[in-house]
Design a protein around this nucleic acid. Structure first.
Lengths: 226, 226
DNA sequence: CGCGGCTTTGATGTTCATCAAGTAAAGTGG
DNA sequence: CCACTTTACTTGATGAACATCAAAGCCGCG
């Protein structure tokens, strides 16, 4: 049987550490499945049985906070490791994962990953590096969210989708106003009001979910000085 | 030469993975130094040359945010890995570290750590686990801080020092009102006002830096419901 | 059709920052 | 040792940032 992993993007970026024979083993332990937009595929409280990463699509990681409010932790893109957050330190997921767009998820048995870490030093190093990057990113985005005003927060998430996800000044928002609120910590109404103000000020154009950025420089300035 | 690491707390919790001969090597690569309270021993922008952990004392990790404001990221306790945050993914520190109490820091050369990860699977696994726990903790405390009201935030930090650091209902705050503001995202005046209110309501007693918790239950309730 | 969820706008009130002013404590130089 | 600055702390007054409540339009879906 031919192994598809050899041609996978992930392989080049990450499994480069795994040589020849190991790739075969890895491949066999792999399972790939499609998740339609809107479907939740990890439930907060689920036992962690395997290691998942996102091959294609867009997802959100979210949880119920101590006040029983839904809260979005982060967005996941292709190449992101979905399970990294507490895979190695907890027994149960303390967050849920839901697809925002049709997505493809790959997963491996825990044992295979753990064995690789123990037996393949290069692999272990890569893993630590990725975990470290994730921590770093989380700290930065988290800390930034604390201090910014509502304008800075909304400008930030618009530019995030524009720059990081869609690489275009015109795109369909993959999240509802409510979800933007859940991510930024703002109420729905505040989210809507800020978006409306940006529209009235000619910074963006809005057609329902569709956003067109008119004055990117001003959006950036709002973030900086907020 | 006799190796002191054998009797170090850290050794039991972490270096248990390192057997016999390796401990010697580890020990030789180790450097230990004292940091007096108030002294900054890592500067944001410094090159990362070695791996540090806190042996004794209390420190803060802090940074200058995008608005040139000082911001406290987290507090570090004995057994905490100071360098974990971006040791494995960045070349320069993106945060500073300052001692809040007289502290003792141990450090190792990067090469030794990296070599151990590559050659000692068990060590690598421990490292990933610790990194994962740090990420997990950061996410939880960070996300919690976003949503809470000023009462919840202040109650939270008081209970943090009481429960996690000093294990007592009576202790000297190791941070100024200003630093509490830098950690919680509140202004100094707000911090002071909330502390005053807690005092007037008979929840705590305050003598300058000294805090005595009178009604712990109520403090906890404030956090929960805030 | 009617129902529920998402969106929008307005009115109102709470939470919090900022400005201003003053006190206390602690170091600094003569 | 005292005048002197500096730093931490405190309180009040004011306004800005934001949540909440209420009402209504829109849209997809059974």
């Amino acid at each position: 049987m031919h192994c598809e992993c050899e041609h996978c993007d992930i392989n080049n970026a990450f499994y480069g550490a795994i040589k020849d024979a190991s790739v075969e083993r890895f491949c066999e332990a792999r399972m790939e499945f499609h998740v339609p937009a809107g479907k939740k595929f990890i439930n907060q409280g689920d036992e962690i049985r395997n290691f998942k990463y996102l091959k294609e699509g867009l997802i959100k990681l979210h949880r119920i906070d101590s006040n029983a409010r839904e809260q979005i932790i982060s967005f996941g893109r292709p190449m992101d490791f979905i399970s990294i957050q507490n895979f190695f330190s907890e027994k149960y997921y303390n967050y849920s994962a839901t697809a925002l767009e049709n997505s493809v998820v790959c997963q491996f048995d825990m044992k295979v990953i753990n064995e690789l870490i123990r037996t393949n030093g290069e692999f272990a190093q890569k893993m630590i590096q990725i975990s470290s990057m994730a921590l770093n990113k989380t700290i930065n985005t988290g800390l930034d969210l604390i201090r910014k005003t509502m304008y800075g927060k909304i400008a930030g998430i618009i530019l995030f989708f524009s720059n990081e996800i869609y690489k275009s000044t015109e795109f369909d928002l993959p999240v509802s106003r409510k979800e933007i609120g859940q991510f930024t910590g703002l109420s729905i109404e505040t989210v809507i009001r800020v978006i409306s103000e940006f529209r009235k000020d000619g910074i963006i154009k809005v057609y329902g979910k569709k956003i067109e950025i008119i004055d990117k420089q001003r959006l950036t300035a709002i973030i900086e000085h907020s």
